[in-house]
Design a protein around this nucleic acid. Structure first.
Lengths: 172, 172
DNA sequence: ACCCTATTGTTGTATATACAACAATAATCA
DNA sequence: TGATTATTGTTGTATATACAACAATAGGGT
């Protein structure tokens, strides 16, 4: 019994620690063995992506959806030109190897999207966000915005611009 | 039968497409609905991290190890001061939520690491890289280096430096 | 109409990950 | 010494992901 309490406290401490961590990469992953500046930055990109993702997941968790599911919902909502086919959603995913069929099925089970076989082309499936899905977005979006605002303060406009260029550049 | 061939060709085309993609983020995820420059950069970090990860995974796949497993192996190899405890490995992981017990067990099954209960403190487990593990690193490292070199050419020293600062900054 | 190929989505299987409960040992301190 | 707390690692369970095979429909040419 006391072990359970123990675990809870332990978990709280650890998660507070992780979320409060404001430190340099070297402290975060307790190493200084980088080959060079470039290597450090590559590791840093992956570490930071994970850090960002985990903060977003924390926001979404109470709503019972994953980051990927949220992305799909938002994409559907942004797409004013009516329903989207699965392949269109897939193209817009950040992690394009995801299995959109199952991702959308999860959303359907939660009543957040509707899926209909497209009569024009029976290979395709039309996916539409439901009112319930829209309502969820209306509740989630402000929280995500809030987090985005925090980030806005970390970089100047110019710095954000540079960031984007350098990232595009490394993939070129 | 022809379906299989079909699939193979399809897969080849898709993966070539993905790997050759040199484009801007907007083209890669087929959208231009970013809230602002900062938001675009945040998405870009996650996308690029995934891009980097997938290239590393491609290198590691023929050796039958995952990126996480490779990281553990490298960490063990870098640690000259003898065996490492599980918690030490965990602290050095990029994705710290990983389950190091199972990760190390996979490596043990492949004969790449050795694990021994620590006699000084029976809660702890000493993990050591085996000669077979070292040999694998000797074969894998040059390939990773090669990829790193490609990246080195994408940024100047100063740009790599800036990249690191901006990333540290956003997590502060 | 028939064959071939392309497009689009689904499913099976193995593996990985997240999260929390659990368990074992060690350290502390009354 | 004995109770309490801390440290360290393991395990169960649900979910996610990767990869490839499979299936259904569409389109194009003969």
């Amino acid at each position: 019994m006391y072990l359970t309490f123990n675990t809870v406290v332990h978990t709280l401490i650890v998660s507070t620690f992780i979320k409060a961590k404001p430190m340099k990469l070297e402290d975060e992953i307790k190493t200084d063995k980088f080959l060079n500046t470039h290597h450090r930055s590559v590791i840093n990109i992956m570490f930071t992506a994970n850090w960002l993702l985990s903060r977003i997941s924390d926001i979404l968790a109470p709503f019972g959806i994953s980051e990927q599911q949220y992305n799909v919902l938002r994409t559907l909502n942004n797409h004013k030109a009516g329903p989207m086919k699965l392949y269109m959603i897939s193209e817009r995913m950040i992690h394009q190897t995801s299995n959109v069929t199952r991702l959308v099925e999860k959303l359907r089970q939660k009543g957040l999207v509707k899926r209909e076989i497209c009569e024009d082309n029976r290979r395709q499936v039309d996916i539409t966000i439901t009112p319930k899905g829209e309502q969820m977005l209306e509740r989630v979006n402000p929280l995500i915005m809030e987090q985005q605002k925090e980030i806005n303060e970390k970089w100047t406009e110019e710095q954000a611009e540079i960031m984007g260029c350098l990232l595009d550049q490394v993939r070129s």
